[in-house]
Design a protein around this nucleic acid. Structure first.
Length: 463
RNA sequence: UCCUCGGUAGCUCAGCUGGUAGAGCAGGUGGCUGUUAACCACCUUGUCGGGGGUUCGAAUCCCUCCCGAGGAGCCA
């Protein structure tokens, strides 16, 4: 493909003495009367290529001296060793074509450091900063590694629908999808909105999870995984939640909770290793400027994860002298402060908590023989909290029907799901990884709005 | 949704117990043959988040709304 060579490739194996062409955007310009130094960056890495332009260039006075941050240029020149300190190689320009000008008085990003809060107001431009481009490279690396991991283990990627008519968890607010005229809504005899007249002839929403559809295909073609956007209309205004986020959801037939946990742990360690291997500069950048403990945390991720049952976790938390804001009782879900205590104080690393009380978990999780707990597992990561939630699914028809009744899940609506238990049901399990939380873990960034290019949160969409 | 802290120049912030606004950076102009968040000199910039109130007088005190950050709940 006739694409221009990227700067990170040029710098990693510089062909000194050859003529090359590069394209990119200027981060800064240092002009003097007869020579200019242009810091050219094309987004391929943190380090830019220094372009040296001297007055012999025909457009030196007319154009080059007027260049400023953000201008786009194409440079032909001679790659040479740099006589000055600061960089090993530089490009001595023979021609510089200005592809796109930028008005420095109006361009909102300066050479100096900006706060992440300010950059959030410029989602369309913030990718030009080191922080966001480094995040983007790590995010991309993680994304590709997810596919590599599952494809290598013969999982098939399943494209589950974005628009759905089922509410998977039975919890969580969903966004309604409608083409009805909002100023003139059709009503039923009871005064409710008549979705029978809507586009899909029934109420439809944006998906909160592809799990149930993934189960259907796992019981048809073998191990599958989904990797796509999911949506929650919950009014949660925190640094860990998005209204639109990406989730990785494998679903494995002939699989119990133990194997499910093994796969989850192996996947996470594969992802961590991939980023450490492929994005060392970006990890180093985040370690130095964002989170000094990042490298240490990533080391811990490579060790075997700790395991503890929910009941044992409750016991341990009850035995500590630490005072919690929320009381610890068997049957109540673990609060953030409890999860943090498990990961940061007791285990000092990732923890897999298993066998939660069935009453705090959804209907589809498999009931354990004790009748009180389900075959569920949550992976808690240091400083992030829950990063993976998974379970072995209830494959037995009768217990599933009982749980659906207890949870007030419509039998009619989920009859198709029961079919999966009627016709060749097998033990199966899966989990969901919050992809942005994985990016948080790998970058050390503190706010989930900074690990997705265009964040959607309650209250506003900037672009 | 609740709690806490914030909102002053393009950005980051100072502005004490009320006396009507400042710094650094960015930007502009000029200078400089090798710079590295370049340097030197000079210059520009404000409905002090919106609205209302107290006061002779409000960036400063009070009320209210909006927005942002951190935490909680819920979750991934």
């Amino acid at each position: 493909m006739p694409l221009p060579q990227r700067i990170n490739e040029i710098l990693s194996s510089p062909a000194i003495g050859t003529h090359i062409q590069v394209t990119g955007w200027l981060r800064s310009c240092r002009n003097s009367k007869e020579i200019s130094f242009l810091d050219l960056n094309d987004g391929s890495g943190l380090t830019g290529l220094q372009v040296v332009a001297d007055k012999t260039l025909p457009n030196y006075e007319s154009e080059i001296q007027n260049l400023s941050t953000a201008c786009a240029i194409t440079v032909h020149g001679l790659l040479q060793e740099s006589p000055a300190k600061g960089q090993a190689v530089e490009l001595l320009a023979t021609t510089i074509e200005i592809v796109g000008w930028s008005n420095p008085a109006l361009y909102p990003l300066q050479k100096k450091r900006h706060s992440l809060e300010f950059l959030r107001t410029l989602p369309h431009l913030r990718g030009r900063t080191n922080s966001l481009s480094a995040m983007m490279r790590i995010r991309n690396c993680l994304s590709f590694a997810v596919h590599r991991f599952f494809q290598h283990h013969a999982f098939q990627q399943l494209h589950t629908p974005i628009i759905t008519t089922s509410d998977c968890e039975g919890a969580g607010e969903m966004f309604t999808v409608t083409s009805l005229d909002l100023d003139n809504l059709p009503k039923t005899a009871e005064g409710q909105v008549s979705f029978a007249e809507d586009f899909f002839s029934q109420h439809a929403s944006l998906t909160v999870s592809g799990q149930l559809e993934a189960e259907a295909y796992a019981l048809a073609v073998g191990p599958v995984y989904t990797f796509g956007p999911t949506f929650r209309a919950e009014n949660s205004h925190t640094s860990r939640h998005l209204a639109e986020f990406w989730m990785v959801e494998p679903e494995i037939p002939f699989c119990d909770l133990t194997l499910d946990m093994e796969i989850a742990e192996e996947m996470m360690q594969f992802l961590v290793a991939a980023v450490i291997e492929e994005c060392p500069d970006d990890i180093d950048f985040f370690s130095r400027f964002v989170d000094k403990k990042l490298a240490m945390r990533l080391e811990v991720m490579a060790r075997p994860f700790h395991h503890i049952t929910y009941s044992d976790a409750i016991n341990q938390l009850q035995q500590t002298t630490t005072k919690f804001n929320y009381p610890i009782n068997w049957g109540v879900d673990l609060q953030s402060e409890h999860e943090k205590f498990l990961t940061d104080e007791i285990f000092k690393g990732p923890v897999i908590v298993t066998d939660y009380p069935k009453n705090i978990k959804p209907f589809y999780m498999r009931c354990n023989d004790d009748g009180k707990t389900v075959a569920a597992m949550d992976i808690l990561a240091p400083s992030i909290g829950e990063i993976i939630g998974g379970s072995q699914r209830e494959e037995r028809l009768t217990p599933l029907e009982q749980r659906m009744a207890e949870c007030h899940v419509s039998r009619q609506e989920y009859d198709w799901y029961l079919d999966l238990r009627r016709f060749g049901s097998v033990p199966h399990a899966g989990f969901g990884l919050g992809f942005e939380r994985m990016v948080l873990l790998m970058t050390g960034l503190g706010n989930i709005r900074d690990v997705i290019p265009f964040p959607r949160t309650p209250g506003g969409v900037a672009r």
